[in-house]
């Protein structure tokens, strides 16, 4: 006798649940829980990481990211506007910059600034030490990505908005600043948040520059402890620290989006 499609779906789903449960049971039984607790969730090692993991490493990660993002946002805005310019050379320059820094790994940019610059210009280094290089490198990579996002956001604002602003006597740049860009940023808030989260993780590349007790950021800090203790606990701790940045960020942005949605 033929089964009804609904009945067949119910049986199929039941089988999937049973298989999943069996897998979970097998994993739980096969795991040596005492060892897992000792190697991954070792309270002594975790405790020894505090307070430095917060007041130095997490703080530095936030500072590098914030400086890189701020510089990148400004750069991205300039590049995005250049891409939309009626002046050909501006468009070409922006396109070359964007294609280059989007295509090259962030790691290469860090190396170019830390090693390449002093080699190319003897006696000269990027000012601002670790923070200076981190800001420049993260900013240039992030700016190249954000430029395209910002350009798309500006183009997504209806043409009527520019017409209305111009018909009130606003100049082109005034209309851009007061009317178009604020609306564009509402549209691109989600992709910009994405970029900020990506930069948070890219800030771990600062390890390439070498670090001291005061300039260490989360990933270097975790690796350092990992090497000392031969234990995975530090990696769990710094992972939670990254989530401590990104999850609240997502929540704040979701709230901002909801507010902007009400005004739209």
């Amino acid at each position: 006798m033929a089964m009804s499609p609904r009945k067949r779906a119910r049986i199929s789903r039941g089988v999937q649940y049973v298989v999943l449960a069996l897998v979970v049971v097998a994993v739980v039984l096969a795991t040596d829980w005492a060892k897992v607790k000792n190697d991954f969730f070792n309270p002594e090692i975790a405790r020894a990481m505090f307070p430095d993991v917060i007041i130095v490493a997490l703080k530095n990660t936030i500072i590098y990211t914030a400086c890189g993002f701020t510089f990148g946002l400004g750069l991205g805005l300039v590049l995005g506007l250049m891409r939309l310019s009626s002046v050909g050379p501006y468009r070409w320059m922006a396109t070359v910059f964007i294609e280059f820094f989007r295509g090259v790994p962030a790691l290469v940019v860090f190396l170019a600034l830390s090693v390449g610059v002093p080699t190319a210009f003897p006696g000269y280094t990027v000012p601002g030490d670790v923070l200076g290089i981190a800001t420049l490198a993260l900013g240039m990579v992030g700016g190249a990505y954000m430029a395209e996002t910002i350009r798309a956001g500006i183009q997504a604002v209806p043409k009527g908005q520019t017409e209305a602003a111009r018909s009130l006597g606003m100049s082109g740049s005034r209309a851009m600043i007061s009317i178009i860009i604020p609306q564009a940023f509402r549209i691109i808030l989600p992709p910009l948040t994405n970029e900020l989260i990506l930069l948070t993780k890219d800030s771990s590349l600062v390890y390439l520059l070498g670090y001291t007790a005061s300039t260490v950021e989360l990933t270097s800090f975790g690796r350092q402890t990992l090497n000392q203790e031969k234990n995975m606990t530090p990696i769990i701790v710094i992972s939670l620290c990254y989530l401590l940045i990104t999850v609240p960020l997502s929540m704040v942005v979701r709230r901002m989006e909801a507010r902007a949605g009400r005004a739209r």
Partner: peptide
């Protein structure tokens, strides 16, 4: 720009600035 500020224009699609309150729409220019 100075010519345009002497000519008011009203559009089919209204084109109010959606990110600003009604009052701000009227005061910004």
């Amino acid at each position: 720009d100075s010519i345009r500020s002497r000519i008011g224009m009203v559009f089919q699609q209204f084109n109010l600035f959606p990110h600003l309150t009604v009052l701000r729409n009227l005061t910004i220019a």
